[in-house]
């Protein structure tokens, strides 16, 4: 997976869930739920962003923490989707 993908995801999270607060630690393996960065509507915002930015289709069954709960997992999920 490319660093570019991770950077784009990180930028989205910082802008939308952290409102530009760069001081918040955001390692690629940080759980977005456990750290209260996303709630149930935030997940849907994230899915909308991934579909638009990366041109992937996210099925309902894909919306699970295993795919979307960290920057690392999201980037891996995008890579798999794009390769499929």
């Amino acid at each position: 997976m490319s660093d570019e993908t991770k950077a784009a995801i990180r930028t989205f999270i910082v802008e939308n869930f952290l409102f530009g607060d760069n001081s918040h630690p955001l390692p690629a393996d940080l759980s977005l739920i456990d750290n209260d960065l996303v709630d149930s509507t935030g997940i849907l915002e994230l899915v909308g962003f991934l579909e638009e930015r990366f041109g992937v289709q996210v099925a309902d069954a894909d919306i699970v923490p295993a795919n979307l709960d960290t920057i690392e997992r999201i980037a891996g999920f995008i890579t798999r989707k794009q390769a499929a």
Partner: peptide
């Protein structure tokens, strides 16, 4: 009445 929950998988509901 919370539309955001309708589309969630059990895995996310459990976490939320």
């Amino acid at each position: 009445y919370l539309p955001g929950l309708k589309q969630q998988t059990p895995e996310y509901l459990a976490r939320f």
